[in-house]
Amino acid sequence: MGGYGDVQMIDDKGLRMDGRKPSECRPIEIETGVVPVADGSARVRWGLNDVIAAVYGPMEAHPRKIQRQDRAVLDVRYNMAPFSTTDRIRPGFNRRSREISKVTAEALESVVMLELYPRSKIRVEIEVLCAEAGTRCAGITAASAALAHAGIPMTDLVVSVASGKVNGVVVCDLNKEEDNYGEADLPMGILPNSGELVFLQMDGDLSQEDFKIAWDYNMEAASHIHEIMARALKGGDA
């Protein structure tokens, strides 16, 4: 969080730079089947974010040492394409993408019924093609849609969204400027049917009151995103 208080991001009418109300998400579109050779795939376009996820498997886990006798292993990779940001990203893993891959895997492991596929592996590949703040949320959302599109049994979908604070106002679904210059960022991974959580991070500075508002914004946004995801999965090309 930059915390530059002098960057004006909320106008006198209480609207944000892109015209949204504080509780409003950027436009979201979800589509399935975008990687034809994969067993399941999804694309999430969310503001300028353009993220695809592909699922391969369940397949044999090799080498054998990675096999688990009682369940499948979920192999998740989050990566940003070199041309996805203003400054080119050098190919290869970095600490940020490793951490996001790890927390994403742990979020998805909580819902995928891995015990149905002992000794096998399910690969989840998340690729950010264009980034505009909130790529980890878009990635988790795309991955859960891709798993569902692949027909892999899950106890619930996962919808991820972040709220935060800019110029002292709690806002939902931060855009790039709000993320860069805002005061806080609270991404959550929510199970839309039960309202439970499988992913949570936060950085910045939020009072207990603001924290509760941000939490509630995320919950409301999750049910909105869930509707879009359900529509894509039901009416998709699958």
């Binding site: 990687v35 050779v37 994969a38 695809i52 592909a54 391969y56 397949m59 192999d75 990779r77 990566n79 070199p82 190919p91 690969r123 590949e125 998340i126 690729e127």
Partner: peptide, 18 residues
């Protein structure tokens, strides 16, 4: 010019160095 075939592109493309 740099080409990357990441494991997203198919079952036979595995993670790791190029």
């Amino acid at each position: 010019c740099s080409a990357e075939v990441r494991p997203v592109a198919g079952r036979s493309w595995e993670p790791g160095p190029p």
